[in-house]
């Protein structure tokens, strides 16, 4: 069995300099810092325009100590393909290629390129950091904004559509590895990256990223809110290895506990859900309960 990394055994070498341009309390800053530790020094990064472009700093200063290619919004995964092809012709089979894109850059404008690269089976790791909206441009809705969230362009009624299930779309490409993680559980992210690094083809990570300005909460509550999303059973930590689904970390433990925190607590902690009515929350609670009844049944 794989040894679980703890805060004490996490490598101390940093690949993200302190003093990034991320907002106070940014969930991405945590996930990126820990994620790069797992990827290690022999890595090349691809980043489309997103919060991460800002986090990494303005020319000629960069906060990341790994080579990084900034690319156009829709081309992230294709750029990964290009770097891989170049490395292959140079006889380099050791360098890890990793793309980090936001949820808009993944679920909306970048989906075609991502699907293309995944279908070709190109050997890289794709990270979608999901702060559930176009937070870099002022918090507009994206394909992964959840139902009921007020955003800059769903200002009064909130988003009326469901969140797009990108990990499921990626799983439909028959990938060797698909994972759902959260910035509130960075060690789960770390262990999953180590686990899949040597698996063949495209590996897909979806990371839930609490966002203080976009979600409307005090920056100090980011981890708490990220955890609430998991503890309420609203967002699940899992992995799909060669098609086989399994809950991990805190979500796995919830199956044993058979007890979820009411989702109302998650919604009421963020101003973006202020327009959700009790009836809507009850409806979402029912959907969560039904999903978890399935998990419990599988466990029996």
């Amino acid at each position: 069995m794989q040894v679980k990394t703890t805060i004490l055994s996490l490598p101390t070498e940093e690949f993200v300099h302190p003093g990034t341009r991320a907002c106070a309390g940014c969930g991405l800053a945590i996930a990126y810092r820990v994620g790069l530790k797992a990827l290690g020094k022999d890595t090349m990064l691809i980043v489309p325009p997103s919060c991460l472009t800002v986090l990494q700093g303005l020319f000629p200063v960069a906060s990341t100590k790994l080579p990084c290619l900034n690319v156009t919004f829709a081309s992230t995964a294709a750029a990964a393909t290009g770097i891989l092809a170049a490395l292959k012709t140079q006889g380099n089979e050791h360098t890890t290629v990793a793309a980090w894109a936001g949820d808009g850059g993944t679920s909306d404008i970048g989906l075609q390129a991502l699907s293309g690269a995944a279908e070709r089976g190109d050997n890289f790791i794709y990270f979608c950091y999901d702060n559930e909206g176009y937070m870099n441009t002022g918090a507009q809705r994206s394909g992964t904004t959840p139902i009921g969230a007020v955003t800059a362009n769903t200002p009064f009624k909130g988003k009326i559509q469901q969140k797009k299930d990108v990990p499921a779309i990626m799983a439909a490409h028959h990938l060797s590895y698909v994972a759902a993680c959260s910035a509130a559980y960075p060690l789960d992210l770390y262990d999953k990256i180590l686990k899949c690094k040597d698996m063949p083809g495209t590996k897909y990570f979806h990371i839930h990223i609490p966002c203080p300005p976009g979600w409307g909460y005090d920056p100090r509550y980011g981890i708490k809110i990220g955890r609430l999303a998991v503890e309420t059973g609203y967002y699940d930590l899992y992995e799909i290895i060669n098609g086989e689904f399994r809950l991990t970390a805190a979500s796995e433990k919830l199956v044993e506990k058979r007890k979820l925190v009411p989702v109302r607590e998650y919604f009421r902690a963020q101003s973006r859900f202020r327009i959700l009515t009790d009836a809507q929350i009850a409806d979402i609670q029912n959907q969560i309960d039904a999903k978890w009844a399935g998990y419990y049944k599988k466990d029996e």
């Binding site: 770097i83 170049a86 490395l87 390129a113 293309g116």
Partner: peptide, 23 residues
């Protein structure tokens, strides 16, 4: 390496990245 991409936008994306990697 011949990459049968899924769009022209990606064709040039592959070339941009591979060229940036020295190829």
């Amino acid at each position: 390496e011949y990459i049968p991409v899924e769009s022209e936008h990606s064709a040039l994306a592959v070339c941009i990245a591979a060229s940036s990697a020295g190829t």
